[in-house]
Computed example of a mutant assay.
Amino acid sequence: MRVAAAIAEVPTAAINLIDLSRQSPLATVGFDGADSPRDESMCAIQFRTGRFVHVADCFADPIYASNPWVTGERGDVRFYASAPLITPEGYVLGTLCVFDAVARSLRPDQASRLLDLADVIVALFERRRHARATADLAAAQERTTRLLETVMDTIDVGLAVTDADGQITSLNRAAQSWHGVAEIPLSSDQITLRGPDGAAIKLAAHRVVDDCDDVIGTVVTAA
């Protein structure tokens, strides 16, 4: 936020997220931020337009003159500018805003740099969101794998799972017991299973999902 304030050459700046009922400052500089009702927010007035807002003198602007952040009830804002935080899908999350207690104007290059900074902030949001989604997906896959392995180990049918190239990726408890080892063989051709009586066991291989290119389930049954 110090970067935004430095760009605008003002003492105060904030990243505000706005929902249906409130404005929440994610980061501030120059003042202590706190949640406030949306109907009192300066940022909420025009943020959905998706346009950069630049008000040199809020006292003289009919849209902002009666706002509690301008009248002194909540603050003493005289100059105000904000860049919308817009996701790639077009959702406006809130604003990057800068303000001051004295009237002033931004130069075009300052406005452009604030818009660029808003894009950087959204990119960081998106990166964090994708990282969280990836972590959640990995955790869900791990839970599914553990559940599948548990189920596989509770049945008495020997089960070998291979990839599309025929490489075995998993043997359940029954298959390991028949094969006599816990290590996974290199390919299905190298499996020599034997039953409890020592007799060779015939492999009956069936694709569990015929249209799946990645995983083939091989069910091992006795001759």
Rank of each mutant, 00 (worst) to 15 (best):
A175K: 05
V151T: 09
R38M: 01
A123C: 09
I191P: 03
T144S: 15
M1R: 13
D109C: 08
G33Q: 03
R48L: 14
E126T: 07
L186R: 15
T134Y: 11
T144F: 12
A8S: 02
F125A: 03
E73F: 13
D213S: 12
L20W: 10
A4N: 03
A5Q: 03
D214M: 08
V215K: 01
E40Y: 11
V70W: 06
A200H: 12
V77P: 04
A44E: 03
Q176C: 08
T144D: 15
I15Q: 06
C97D: 10
R129V: 05
A139V: 10
A174S: 09
A111C: 08
E89I: 10
S112M: 11
T49N: 14
C212D: 15
P11C: 08
L124V: 12
S188G: 06
A175P: 02
W69D: 12
T12C: 13
L96K: 03
I201P: 06
F52P: 02
R129G: 01
W69A: 12
V29N: 11
A174G: 04
A140S: 14
R173I: 00
S21N: 12
L85Q: 03
G72L: 07
G75R: 06
R129N: 04
V10P: 06
I216K: 09
S36A: 10
L148A: 09
V122Y: 01
R194G: 01
T169I: 11
A111G: 13
S36I: 10
V70D: 04
D57K: 04
R107W: 08
A81P: 04
D109H: 14
V55E: 05
P11E: 08
F47T: 10
N172H: 06
F31W: 02
A27K: 08
V70I: 11
G90E: 01
F125L: 03
A56P: 02
T28Q: 01
A4Q: 01
L137Y: 09
V77L: 07
L186H: 14
V3A: 10
R2D: 14
E9V: 13
D39E: 10
